[in-house]
Amino acid sequence: MRILIYSLIILFDFFVSSTWLQHIAVGGIMPNTTLIILVSYALLRDDVEGTIMGFCAGLLYDIFFGRIIGMSAMLMMLTGFFVGKPFRDFFKDNYIAPIIMVAAATLAYELAYYILNFLLLGRTNIFRYLGMVILPSVAYNLILCIFIYRAIYAIDGIIFRREERKRGFMK
């Protein structure tokens, strides 16, 4: 049930961000909604589930757009793992933790992506890339993360209550 719903969410996000989101790009910069969904989910659940989701979402991107299969899968998976790790017991109603984690995760993810795909090809002008691509996308993600976290929180609550009820009947 949970797996099915989140698979559909990831797939829907993939379609939307490759088609509709292109229309709302500001100055050529788009938000990375997949990353926001992943961070929200990893925060609400735990590191292992974040890892699985990150791996699947990254693999989806790699298979369709990627030049090298496994690159985004590995980066997304590590993002999911590290985000899920330290925040077992925080107040999940609060927005501060997700906002900080989305900012940190976007920064780390995009920086790692730059290093693996551009720095290693000899594009050493790191501050230019930081200013033109990485920081704008961090800012855009920060704004969107409030809405997406809210939505994932609600969806997760519904699934959680259903699972609890089912478990109750079983006993």
């Binding site: 890892t51 791996f55 090298i68 496994g70 690159m71 899968a73 590995m74 998976m77 590590l78």
Partner: peptide
Amino acid sequence: FILGLIVLSLTMMAFTG
């Protein structure tokens, strides 16, 4: 589990790169 997935990704990268 995590290590296995990392190795899997690296293998895929090595083969498709």
